[in-house]
């Protein structure tokens, strides 16, 4: 068969990704610079409006805080789980639980929080703290706590392989040479785990940054986060020209995620050096 015949075999795939991936990408990129059929920088300039900049700022702060806290807690949990028996029930139980929470989070997590902390929630009633529950809907209080419920599990899942890559021989070698536990963590395990840790941290950042469902289900007033702002541009009765701004915001999100993912790719290549078993 001639090469041109062989190329026919990949036509369906390329046709599909053109329609459902490349065209959407072009729509976002081009749409960010077009308004009413004419090229413009107005959409990009609209990113400077206070509502958008504060949403971006909130999104970044929320993502950074939950990524750092989630990474630290998740790493401690991952280490604790790694000391359990390799194929024991405990490890399977925790990884399965974390898999569910990291993946199915979304709307269900929002409900779980309403059931716990809202005015009628279990904990509110148990502790007898009446009335409260409004803090739950604020981006820097309730949302941060909710986000931890999928950030910590994701950290466990991403980081566990790295912790399990620590060989007991390294610790034994340190002890044989007279090193303490603290020295082992500072000079041996720490430096080996650091690239994996930072890589996972970046992954957690993009995870929180692009999350929409939980926030959408919890926040009904206003749009404190960038994904909610984007969602708002086409659920509200569209003010003319808002579409373009939505695309500009979408482009801004892609740029942030792409930068972080690139950094992640570089780190991950370094980290995987130690993971070969």
């Amino acid at each position: 068969m001639r090469p041109s015949g062989a190329l026919l075999g990949v036509v369906p795939f390329f046709a599909y990704v053109t329609v459902f991936l490349l065209i959407p990408a072009l729509v976002v990129v081009i749409g960010a610079f077009v308004s009413g059929g004419r090229p413009t920088l107005g959409n990009i300039r609209a990113l400077g409006e206070p509502a958008v900049t504060s949403a971006l700022w909130h999104s970044v702060v929320l993502s950074v805080v939950t990524a750092v806290v989630g990474a630290v807690l998740g790493a401690i949990l991952a280490y604790a789980v790694s000391t359990a028996r390799p194929n024991g029930v405990l490890k399977r139980f925790v990884t399965s639980l974390c898999g569910v929470l990291a993946q199915f989070g979304g709307v269900i997590l929002a409900f779980a929080f309403l059931a716990t902390f809202s005015a009628q929630g279990f904990l509110t009633r148990l502790l007898g703290v009446g009335g409260g529950g409004l803090w739950l809907y604020e981006w820097d209080k309730g949302l941060m706590l909710v986000y931890l419920y999928f950030q910590v599990p994701l950290m466990l899942i991403v980081f566990l392989p790295a912790v399990e890559g620590l060989r007991p021989q390294w610790r034994e070698a340190t002890e044989t040479l007279g090193g303490s536990t603290a020295l082992y963590w500072r000079k041996v395990a720490g430096p080996i785990l650091l690239p994996s840790f930072i890589g996972a941290l970046l992954l957690l950042f993009t995870n929180a940054f692009s999350a929409y469902a939980t926030a959408a289900a919890l926040v009904s007033q206003g749009a404190p986060l960038l994904p909610l702002q984007i969602g708002g541009t086409f659920t509200s009765e569209v003010v003319l020209g808002q579409e373009g701004v939505g695309k500009a915001m979408a482009l801004a999100m892609v740029v942030v995620v792409a930068i972080v993912m690139t950094a992640y790719a570089v780190l991950d290549r370094r980290a995987s050096k130690w993971l070969v078993r």
Partner: peptide
């Protein structure tokens, strides 16, 4: 090329995909 295209969606949050998919 195929690998690159297949991994591309990782850098595109679902909310962004929605924006681009509207005309499609």
């Amino acid at each position: 090329t195929v690998e690159f295209i297949c991994l591309l969606p990782l850098t595109v949050p679902a909310i962004v995909l929605v924006v681009g998919l509207t005309p499609v």
